[in-house]
Design a protein around this nucleic acid. Sequence first.
DNA 1: CGGATAATTGATCAAACGATAAATAACGCT
DNA 2: AGCGTTATTTATCGTTTGATCAATTATCCG
Lengths: 241, 241
Amino acid sequence: MPQQTMYEGPNGNNDESQMKTLSKTRRPAPPREQQRLDPTEREAIIAREAVSFFAEHGFEGQTRELARRLGITQPLLYRYFPSKEALIERVYQEVFVGRWNPSWEKIITDRSVPLKARLGRFYREYAQVILTYEWIRLFMFAGLKNLGLNARYLKMLRERAFEKVIEEIRFEYGRPSTGDLPITVLEIEMVWGLHAAIFYLGVRQFIYSMPLETDVDSIIDAKVATFLGGVRTVLPAKTSP
Amino acid sequence: MPQQTMYEGPNGNNDESQMKTLSKTRRPAPPREQQRLDPTEREAIIAREAVSFFAEHGFEGQTRELARRLGITQPLLYRYFPSKEALIERVYQEVFVGRWNPSWEKIITDRSVPLKARLGRFYREYAQVILTYEWIRLFMFAGLKNLGLNARYLKMLRERAFEKVIEEIRFEYGRPSTGDLPITVLEIEMVWGLHAAIFYLGVRQFIYSMPLETDVDSIIDAKVATFLGGVRTVLPAKTSP
DNA sequence: CGGATAATTGATCAAACGATAAATAACGCT
DNA sequence: AGCGTTATTTATCGTTTGATCAATTATCCG
């Protein structure tokens, strides 16, 4: 006797008219989804869907609706994550830690490439990661909830990227290293300004739902150029004659 | 037979052992707050506190806690607002409509004042309004919830401020009016960039909880100067010889 | 095939939450 | 002082929501 469920799955899989091709043909990639999954795979699927789900509904989104989207029952979530909060923590890891690319730091400091090209490439690649529906909204939800997450992330961003950018600009213009002359408030504020411009593109798209009229890369190139020009004019005077 | 309730009141008032000192001493000017208020006054108090409350907790904040902060009971809220959603709507009005200053439009277009001074003054005053805990967070909460509110507000901002700014810049540099030559994507994008820089100051403070190291006005002045310089270099060429 | 393991489900709990209705009491008016 | 109006409270309803536990069944292994 078939089980009765109240809802129609997203693919209408309850329909039994489709052929049963479950017959353990040891195919390497069966296109039909299994009913029982390997725990590590199930966990990954839940985590991936949770990213999408919480990005859409915020962290107040209900576990039952997440389960429905996954095609599983709600208690199953608690087999893989001890609490909703633990699942959210996993989402943070997935997005804010997992999507950071360590090679970005090399791009910035690779002096065999002209500075403007380096910055352009870094900010374009960085923008490609954070200018997504999931990244932008989750970052904002996390900020409004306010655990230290955002400040912590931005502290890392400052150390791994912003300070390196400033060091490279100093070098390019023959100024003292940031090791000798500390980074000024003005310098870091200009980097914030560039960051703000990029980040705000994501806010407009994914939080205000206002489609952009231009492609992101050209905006970034323009901003980087303006930034380089601007930072040069306000740099503190040389200390060495 | 007395009814049994399952919970203990916040003050443990079920305990009858405390003295009854409630004996109606008719003092003329009691410093303690009134128990009954005029409906219009009560409504204003609720609305004001709701602004603060929802800015802090988001729109999922509970009506019971709001009532507790107001020193009233939760059902009383429903005497003044038919639903929680109506109360939230009132919060929108209070903040995003009520705090807009119509004279800003005059500041921008007053050609008896130098352009740079006009823009500096407008953006400083505007920043003073939106760079508050309540404004920034409510705007972000509203965006993430996404009714059309943010897009609608920004459409107004564009019409009443951004387009006027561009018109004044066109005039300053002897370019054709925006009535004759439509605003270019590049121009509006540069205004967005300035707006982003200011808005992001609020995000850093009130969403990421990162205190600013500089005063806002000096940042704004610098941004306005950079903006004016930048927009001049990228303006489309004159169409009249 | 047949039993063991464990992934998954069904049932349900307790607290939280928006909302409603009736009871209470503060204030104004005569 | 007495009375009517109504601001405010008390009690409670119906759902929702995170979480728990025992029952179920798909899958693996010999």
